[in-house]
Amino acid sequence: MQDRIPILHMSNFLLVTIQVDMHDRLALQLQDDLTSKISATGARGVLIDISSLEMVDSFIGRVLGNISSMSRVLDAKTVVVGMQPAVAITLVELGLSLPGILTALNVAKGMELLSRD
């Protein structure tokens, strides 16, 4: 199994595309990697593309929330893009509406959101 998700650094932003079925350690590793990379690069925004993710459970949801809060502390915005309808319906039913997280329909709209202000 893969043990790291690659992080792309593009001008002021960090880009992550999650394409594998993440096991818990991998999600926590991503959380660590992203926070250290934000502080190392001084990135102003983080975009996490989850359009190929077929499931988000409470653990992954919590990790996404953590990344969002931690980046805010480091003065960077995080936007989660491309969540599938079935995944969104399931998350809401599970009782997780991730209130602190910014979302966008796709990468282009997510970049637009990060570039604002």
Binding site: E54, D57, A86, T90
Partner: peptide
């Protein structure tokens, strides 16, 4: 259906953990 699949998989993930 896709939604039901996702619900089953998510529930299984929670309970397996």
């Amino acid at each position: 259906s896709l939604v039901d699949q996702t619900k089953m998989v998510t529930a299984a993930s929670e309970l397996a953990r």
